[in-house]
Amino acid sequence: MSEPSRVEVPLLNMQVAEQSRRAPAPMVAKAPAGIRRFLHTQTSGAVADRAFGGLMLTCALSILAIVVLIVVMLLDQSKLSLHAFGLKFFFRTAWDPVSGDFGALPFIYGTLVTSFLALCIAVPLALCVAIFIMEISPAFLRTPIAFLTELLAAIPSVVYGLWAIFVLVPMMRDHLGPFLAKYFGWTGLFGGSNFGEGFLTAGIILSIMILPVISSITREVMGAVPISQKEAALALGATRWEMIRMSVLRNSRIGIVGAVILGLGRALGETMAVTMVIGNNPQISHSLFAPGHTLASVIANEFTEATGDLYLSALIEIGLALFLVTIVVNSIARLLVWAVTRGKPVAAH
């Protein structure tokens, strides 16, 4: 805007000129007289506001109350077992409802083994799928494939279990199991008799179930990598894979770890499908063909049949342990994902 140092003449002239070409004011009816009177007599709504805000707060607080109540209830109901066995509960292998001798180690072992197997299978696949969808796939395939992998997440656990019983278990028994025993029997992981149900089958079905979680969060994290980073790598003459490795994976690795841990959280607590194919036997076996039990599956299987207060209390203590472990695992995962997708830029190395 350039204006001369003496302003009076140009500005005033402009104002006059503007006014002379103005459209005449439209002829409009007078405002209905009732409007101001109506509005001025309306209440300020302060009472309603306070009531509404209070209601919202109450509902939000109910979430807090529920969690506190769950913890208190679980603690209270597992008192018997806590007193009887103390912390040693988690290192004992006995599980004998008849004599009232309980220990959670077989279930912890089963949960760890199946979750670990699931991660071993799901993580590489999920990463590849995420890379394919985000960086390699032609645009027209991107949405359908993303949708299909999300669809995997919408299938109920019990349906996975049903499918596993009638498709995966026979396949395991007749084809995959013998194959593994023949070529990888030397590892000692595939010994003993193979009935199709056991740790490995549970691990496989778990891997299918946690894959969409890991894949979709990995995609989200990869999507947060700035395009300039990718272009920088390409401009240096990197091949597509080198670009993915240097820019995309390097920048999103913390978020990917978060996605994997979130998948772990899901695997630890997954119940129905595992219960249906793991064989339900509280034993610690180094063979992946052996039937086992997880923390979640033993509860699902024995809770309604638990006779005796100590038995029930031991099962609830297992539930409490599962609750606390998943809280820790999920909190770590959320923190990591959050750090990448909305937090400050991750420190470069």
């Binding site: 439209p26 409009v28 009816a29 209905p32 009732g34």
Partner: peptide
């Protein structure tokens, strides 16, 4: 405020203004 007739009137007037 709920009176439809007055509302119609007010809307027309305000849009003309």
């Amino acid at each position: 405020f709920r009176n439809r007739k007055v509302l119609d009137e007010v809307v027309e007037r305000s849009l003309k203004q």
